[in-house]
Amino acid sequence: MSLKFRLASRNLFHDRLRFVATIVGIVFSIVLVTVQLGLYAGFRRMVTTMIDHAQADLWIMPTGTKCFEDPSLLDERQRFRALAVKGVTGVTPLVIGYAQWRLPTGTTTPVFMIGAELDAASLHPWNVVAGRLGELAIPGAVAIEQSYFSRLGVSSPGDTAEIRDQKVQVVAVTKGIRSFTTTPYVFTDLDRGHAYTGIPANKASYLLVRVAPDADVDDIKRDLRASLTDVEVLTTGEFRDRSQSFWLFGTGAGAALFGGALLGFIVGTVIVAQTLYSSTKDHLNEFATLRAIGSSSSYIYTVIIWQAVLSAIIGFAGAAAVSGAVVSMTADSALPVTVTPALTVGLFLLTLVMCVGSAMAAIVKIMRIDPTLVFTR
């Protein structure tokens, strides 16, 4: 094995310029695939961030709701019918909608309001880094994300603005609750959520249902569907899947990201295949000699595959360094590149497949060599 590895490394490093071109091709393709898949993973996580942080076992929503940000309305009287279902321990209304945020300078910008009952399990701000969440009970209090400070014209808790000609004051600041649509999320209590969005007091966007610990969620979902009309009842997992399916495939965003990743894989494979093929062609006499002295096909296969594996390891190391820098630079952006441990392992295996697959063209060329070629030199 050591002899095969040594021969493979010498063939690979013999032409430094070609070796550098190979590594650059691998790095370029893997970074492109990483960024595209990282954007997909980040986008997939962001489109369900509100659903994931809501304290609900079941969601009651208007029929046809496509995602969390779909501002449809249902009659809040459905809440009392839901509470009458056996096994339901709580039903909390949630109000969402768009509003205009007026900066102290007089300019306006759209925001996405989330109004929830503060003293009940619902959807509340998380990762609070300044101010206190309890102060949302103060009239006119709101919580915002720190990355939107400049857009909203505020710099710290205590700053004020206006929504629908009503004064609001920032009392809590969060970190990391960003919207993939770039419209800032603004949290407040339920009553002010109605007022700021203009939604009537007897309407709600969602009803968040909590069930007893010993109850069967599927049975309660079935009973709720039988008791309520003109609504849908989904588990948190079902609502998450629906939202992801709408944003990733219903809008074409997922197809675009996958297309970019596929393009990077194809480009990298072609570059590596061309380089390995050229390297093998330059060493035809050496491989012919090996075949003439009786080296087995498997021995030659192993040498070429080792060249591919070495290229994959070195190229992936360079791609990982560049991708790490990209992840750091986009961490606070509207759509960060997210690279998970599972994605890292998958990308390494993808690099190996790309390089070893590229080596097949070189192997085919070697197997067509006439061993007597060495005696005609």
Rank of each mutant, 00 (worst) to 15 (best):
Y277N: 14
L350K: 01
Q274C: 13
I366L: 11
S323M: 03
V170T: 10
E232K: 09
L190K: 14
Y98Q: 07
T229H: 01
D370I: 04
A334P: 02
A288E: 10
F375C: 12
G259W: 05
M329I: 07
G346L: 09
G64R: 06
V171D: 00
V356I: 15
F348M: 08
D119S: 10
Y185T: 11
D165K: 15
K4S: 10
Q100E: 15
R77I: 00
R291T: 13
D241L: 10
L234P: 10
D241E: 06
K86I: 01
P110Q: 07
A361L: 14
A56R: 07
F43C: 06
I114C: 08
V85D: 02
G252V: 08
L248T: 03
T344V: 08
S205E: 04
T229A: 09
A362W: 05
T235Y: 02
G64V: 01
L234S: 09
G268V: 08
H194S: 05
V209C: 00
S9A: 13
A204Y: 05
G140A: 06
D332Q: 14
V339M: 14
S358L: 06
R240I: 12
F239C: 04
V27Y: 02
Y148K: 13
G294N: 06
A292D: 07
V231T: 14
D189C: 06
A261F: 03
E238H: 03
V309Q: 04
L262C: 11
S297W: 09
T344Y: 07
L224M: 03
G87Y: 11
S243N: 13
K4Y: 03
G97Q: 14
L373I: 06
L284F: 11
G252A: 11
Y301S: 09
L343C: 10
M1Y: 10
R178F: 00
A256M: 13
H194P: 09
R377A: 10
F43G: 09
L228N: 05
M113E: 12
A212Y: 01
R222F: 01
L12K: 09
S243F: 08
K167P: 00
T302Q: 11
V129K: 15
T338N: 11
C355Y: 04
A308W: 01
R132A: 11
T235D: 02
M360V: 14
A334Q: 12
L290P: 02
S2A: 12
